[in-house]
């Protein structure tokens, strides 16, 4: 018996060691970038794998101010927060209607929204650009916010419909008996129960819009309007050989999504598994 426990322990230790080494190997590029962001260009070239001689924040300060990451950060924040608000306000009622209100053509309409989920955005990005052009919204943050919200809708409605479907219909019916209108029921009875789904929706929307590259690339022209992803891309184009500075900008770009991930790790994993399996 004792030897069995021992054997089990050694196999666990071996497993741990293998996984830990693998984890270090796979996340090495991230650590490499963080370490290099504290180095000067000379240091990166001469001793790429050692720790920096001194932890100086010059690359961050220069990227933030001279590289204009300050502005990119603000633009991304505006677009992302605006998009999250619009998506939540639009997708929740729609998901609720599909899940709880029965009406003719509900399935057909729902499939019409689902169609957008499998469609690659590249297939419609050109007409979107011209659509926005006729609306006079090319090269505006408003335009990017609206398009991002629109494109996020299919998945968001799908997610919220699944969330609301898991809430028993009896709740709605008894609220109706008490004389509450449909909106009142939705707002004060059902929505509070859908909180986990709503949190997942907000996290997904945050990640998608904050990390998006294609839409800002196509829709924004003026560097003053660039988002953090687009800004990083144009920054590396200007500073091709200035590795330290580029890594400073890269790390600045990573920080928000990593923080959100660490804070909401749980809802992340659950939301993802639910989304794919339903």
């Amino acid at each position: 018996m004792e030897s069995l426990v021992k054997r089990w322990k050694t196999s666990q230790i071996a497993l741990w060691t293998v996984l830990l080494l693998l984890l270090i190997f796979i996340t090495a590029p991230i650590f490499y970038a963080v370490i290099a962001s504290f180095k000067t260009n000379m240091e990166i070239f001469n001793s790429p794998f050692s720790l920096p001689k001194s932890w100086n924040f010059d690359n961050y300060i220069n990227a933030w101010n001279l590289g204009n990451f300050k502005q990119y950060f603000l633009n991304s924040a505006l677009i992302t927060v605006g998009g999250m608000l619009i998506v939540a306000l639009v997708a929740c009622p729609a998901g609720y209607a599909f899940a709880q209100l029965s009406f003719k053509g509900s399935n057909l309409l729902f499939y019409m929204f689902l169609l957008g989920m499998s469609l690659p955005i590249q297939a419609i990005i050109i007409p979107i650009f011209f659509q926005l052009k006729t609306m006079g919204l090319v090269n505006t943050l408003t335009g990017v916010t609206l398009v991002s919200s629109g494109l996020a809708l299919p998945f968001s409605i799908f997610l919220m419909r699944n969330t609301f479907r898991d809430i028993p219909k009896e709740l709605r019916e008894s609220a109706a008996m008490d004389g509450a209108g449909e909106w009142r029921t939705f707002w004060s009875v059902i929505l509070p129960l859908a909180k986990p789904g709503l949190v997942a929706l907000l996290i997904f929307t945050f990640m998608n819009i904050w990390n998006d590259f294609l839409l800002p690339l196509v829709l924004l022209v003026n560097p003053e309007k660039f988002t953090i992803s687009l800004g990083l891309y144009s920054f590396q184009g200007e500073q091709t050989t200035n590795f330290g500075l580029i890594f400073g900008g890269t790390v600045i770009s990573m920080i928000p999504s990593i923080i959100v991930y660490i804070l909401f790790q749980r809802s992340f994993v659950e939301g993802m598994t639910d989304g794919a399996n339903k």
């Binding site: 009622p93 629109g150 809708l153 939705f186």
Partner: peptide, 21 residues
């Protein structure tokens, strides 16, 4: 009233672009 905002946004930025494409 529950569906209209979604329908409008979806039509302008996905459905119409699909037809336009």
């Amino acid at each position: 009233s529950f569906l209209l905002p979604a329908l409008i946004l979806y039509s302008i930025f996905m459905l119409i672009p699909m037809f336009d494409a």
